[in-house]
């Protein structure tokens, strides 16, 4: 699926690349100084973070290059930071992709009634800043599939006569333009087909946002507006852990849930059963049934992005 898998990271037999070694040595040297400095000043400094953590944050490596120990350390630091920042005990994990699984989504647009239950379930599940929504439901009018004519801000009672509803979120493209765009490889496709972001590696240039044809990427313009009382403590490194400001984030098919076999929050919240989520590689999955037995379409298929997000109708 992706040649940039992060699986070698866990493989102790894999030889590190020479540049890797040099880089690691460089970072270690910096890290030693940092820790030495941190030891002398372990009291909170620097915006509620200890000096040691601040240095470790600064020199944190790319997720795909960390070894198991580094990951463990980083996860612990993330939990510490959340505690300091929000006073909440979170559990941050980095469950790897399940082998033989590629996630896909299908939405029945004759069932979607525009309630936006999925939108808000997603916001709460994924610790989104309260000014951000990963899912956009567009109110379309009969006789048109022109997104420019859709209403993104509809309110009141739904469904409205003469309208149908088109929910959109990250399409988890199999040929993602955002991944290509990123100058620092801070975003990549995991083996289960989900495009993820390393929030600690992103430099915030927002080129991926320009590249995404589905407006699926969202930027943390300021510190996320996240009420501490509403934090979901079940988090994932590449998923819903609290994000810093100045980085891009996106829908990740609820990695913290789906990699443990659970349904994504939007599927769970949908009252109409319009959302069908599953493993594209499993011929007996519901999504495969839909794809093989229904006329389906994908948005902007002409761009060659190969979204793993389909729409279908009841017959």
């Amino acid at each position: 699926m992706s040649d940039k898998s992060n699986d070698q990271r866990r493989d102790p037999g894999a030889d590190p690349q020479p540049t890797d070694l040099a880089r690691r040595r460089f970072l270690q040297r910096l890290g030693v100084t940092a820790l030495a400095a941190g030891a002398t000043a372990s009291a909170p400094a620097w915006g509620g973070s200890t000096l040691g953590d601040a240095f470790a944050d600064f020199f944190q490596d790319h997720y795909q290059r960390m070894d198991a120990d580094e990951v463990k350390e980083t996860l612990a630091r993330i939990e510490r930071k959340a505690k300091r920042r929000y006073g909440v005990d979170i559990d941050c994990k980095d469950t790897p992709a399940i082998p033989g699984v590629v996630f896909g989504y299908a939405i029945n647009i004759s069932k979607c009634r525009g309630y936006r239950d999925c939108v808000h379930a997603c916001v709460e599940e994924n610790n989104l800043s309260r000014d951000t929504q990963y899912i956009r439901v567009v109110e379309m009018h009969h006789g048109s599939l022109n997104l420019h004519e859709g209403d993104h801000y509809y309110q009141g009672t739904v469904p409205e006569p003469g309208k149908y509803y088109l929910p959109m979120q990250c399409m988890q493209c199999d040929n993602p333009p955002c991944v290509k765009a990123c100058p620092v490889e801070a975003t990549w496709m995991e083996q289960d087909g989900v495009v993820v972001v390393d929030y600690d590696w992103c430099i915030g240039c927002r080129y991926c946002m320009a590249a995404c044809p589905y407006q699926a990427r969202h930027f943390n313009w300021g510190d996320p507006d996240l009420p501490p009382g509403e934090i979901n403590p079940d988090t994932h490194f590449l998923g819903n852990r609290p994000r810093p400001k100045g980085v891009v984030e996106k829908c990740h098919f609820c990695l913290q849930r789906t990699r443990e076999g659970r349904m994504p929050a939007c599927q769970e919240a949908c009252p109409t059963g319009a959302r069908i989520f599953g493993n594209l590689l499993d011929p007996n999955s519901e999504i495969r049934y839909v794809l093989e037995n229904r006329a389906v379409f994908r948005l902007k298929e002409e761009l060659g992005t190969e979204p793993k997000f389909w729409y279908f109708r009841d017959v």
Partner: peptide, 26 residues
């Protein structure tokens, strides 16, 4: 324009990760 100018060293080949030649920004 960068959201995280403190991470600009991520662009340095070797210690950072430089998505060259894939990314036009690179």
């Amino acid at each position: 324009d960068l959201g995280r100018p403190d991470r600009i060293w991520h662009l340095l080949p070797g210690i950072g990760r430089f998505n060259f030649p894939e990314s036009m920004l690179a």
